[in-house]
Design a protein around this nucleic acid. Structure first.
Lengths: 150, 150
DNA sequence: CCTTCATATAACAGTGATAGTTACATGATG
DNA sequence: CATCATGTAACTATCACTGTTATATGAAGG
């Protein structure tokens, strides 16, 4: 999804769900479902009808990885977690306590890191990767629909 | 599962899968499946027949939360992750790069924290919680099958 | 108007991972 | 040799997620 937003930041005009679905090898309805979260959070806008589609409401430098993560409702960071969040057994409570301490520290660090990186930073990283390609590769990539920087 | 191991560390004799399943409100076969990982990693041993069951091969201070996590084969720490681990698209590669940087940092921190805590530490935490109970509560808990410390 | 394009959303089907269950084999104990 | 307990295969159930179909709504252009 980050992927799509960055592509959108480099395009003129809106991106249709149809086109986005083709890019990601999925279905337009799936795109709409997912983008709905980003629209509700105010990062993108959707327009119906001729010439419609999805577009950003702000620059790539105004959206962090954390923003996107939250807007997509992906609040579960870890695959681990307490089996029972409020157990009666004191042993279980002690287990949860230790586990949660560790998880919260790691989660806090991850969220800080995600908040540090804007989509513009990722786009700049793309530019570096593109510039590192040989001229032939650059041409091939451009023909494959991957726009060159600028 | 940590739960069970700590109970085992405070019991005389082995714990049957049947009893463990009752404790966790699940099925003996599920217990056997899960404990198999811990047995293969050498933290517990299983004995068949009369008086058989599961027992620890070492003290609770010889097992960390990380040990258990690894032995259970729970290698997926995060619910997040790259959609395509090796994409052709350079934008996707740039996204993966930024995401992986953040994830790896957080994962490394979490693993350090998990490795820091032994099951004996958790058991000690249990003791503190138990000691903090009123005498009546302590009696009630003991009758409910939750052994007092010592 | 009315056709076309595009999103909005509900409803349903497919899919994969995990948990639970049943069944049977094996081994240890008394 | 009966009983207790694990080992394991095979099947079912459940749940979340993805994909699909169908219908409604709204915007643009002729």
């Amino acid at each position: 999804m980050l992927h799509l937003l960055i592509h959108m930041g480099r395009m003129e005009g809106p991106l249709t769900s149809e086109a986005a679905a083709t890019m990601l090898g999925t279905n337009p309805v799936v795109i709409r479902r997912t983008m709905a979260g980003l629209r509700d959070a105010g990062y993108v806008r959707s327009v119906k009808g001729h010439g419609g589609g999805w577009s950003l409401t702000r620059g790539l430098d105004g959206i962090t990885m954390l923003d996107v993560h939250r807007a997509l409702g992906e609040n579960r960071i870890f695959a681990l977690g307490p089996a029972d969040p409020d157990p009666v057994c004191l042993v279980e409570r002690a287990v949860n306590g230790s586990l949660e301490d560790a998880l919260q520290e790691a989660e806090a660090l991850l969220l800080r890191r995600l908040a540090d990186v804007t989509l513009a930073d990722i786009a700049a990283d793309f530019d570096r990767r593109f510039a590192a390609l040989s001229p032939e590769d650059r041409t091939a990539r451009a023909h494959a629909g991957q726009l060159p920087p600028g």
